[in-house]
């Protein structure tokens, strides 16, 4: 969970905060899809570098927070390098613990890791610049997402922020009675967490319904705009990425 608090699509926000969330989702998808076909290390490195510069320039993320946010993606990447290095066929560079490390393996592993970093930095920039409400309002208007799903997701987002405390309380309640083996206890805690969440879901559904969700055509109070600037933004991002693909 990111600990950033984006303030919304307001004229006062940063460059990325002012962009339309649906456009950002589309670009995030495009990046994710493009990387599927990329194994060229220099292209991936360039894209990742540009992503870092872009994130620093267009969001409130400082260098320190951006580095910290990379941690899970780096860990994921290290695992990918390690496993690919020793599982790809080819002449061995070195042998570690009886496993052959191949050049091809290292190259593929590094590419997959860089891919994770690239998606990671774009995702972090997205999360830091997009409040959930704007995302959902924009998706209902610009991507025809059903309001019933959009507002259910928003309610769920609230639930998500309460989840760590609930989990901690359940685990504390188990610990205080001196519980048994860790894994079965964790499994039981999952059932307890689910029961609470499902009961909460029924109450939330009733709250949404009694406020009239799903009764017919609805209006939107603070519309999330889709402007020519968003078009320019999309063109610039795809243009830069295209240039890197063509020339790097």
């Amino acid at each position: 969970m990111t600990d950033t608090q984006p303030t919304g699509t307001q004229p006062t926000g940063t460059l990325l905060e002012r962009r339309n969330p649906t456009v950002k989702v589309a670009l995030l998808c495009a990046v994710s899809l493009t990387t599927l076909f990329l194994f060229d290390l220099s292209v991936l490195a360039w894209l990742w570098g540009l992503g870092v510069v872009g994130a620093l320039a267009t969001t409130r993320l400082g260098a320190r927070r951006l580095v910290l946010a990379h941690a899970p993606f780096v860990a994921f990447g290290v695992g990918l390098v390690a496993v690919n290095a020793v599982t790809r066929p080819g002449p061995a560079l070195v042998t570690v613990l009886g496993m052959d490390v191949t050049r091809a393996g290292l190259a593929v592993g590094a590419a997959l890791a860089l891919r994770a970093l690239l998606i990671g930095v774009v995702t972090v920039a997205f999360l830091a610049s997009t409040p959930p409400r704007e995302l959902m309002v924009s998706l209902t208007r610009h991507a025809r997402l059903s309001p019933r799903y959009a507002y259910a997701l928003l309610a769920a987002h609230r639930m998500l922020t309460a989840m760590p405390r609930r989990w901690a309380t359940i685990r504390a309640a188990q610990a205080v009675r001196g519980s048994g083996p860790a894994l079965p206890e964790a499994g039981r805690a999952v059932v307890t967490l689910l029961v609470g969440a499902i009961r909460g879901a029924e109450r939330t559904a009733l709250a949404l319904e009694s406020r009239g969700l799903g009764s017919g055509p609805r209006s939107v109070w603070h519309v999330v705009p889709l402007t020519w600037a968003d078009g320019v933004f999309a063109v610039v991002v795809t243009g830069v990425a295209g240039a890197v693909l063509a020339f790097a």
Binding site: R148, Y149, A152, H157, M159, L194, A197, I198
Partner: peptide
């Protein structure tokens, strides 16, 4: 039903949270 939709979303959130932990 909205109840079913919210339940699906809730399952997504709980499992999403557990995966994250």
């Amino acid at each position: 039903a909205l109840k079913d939709v919210v339940l699906m979303v809730t399952l997504g959130v709980v499992f999403g949270f557990l995966y994250w932990v």
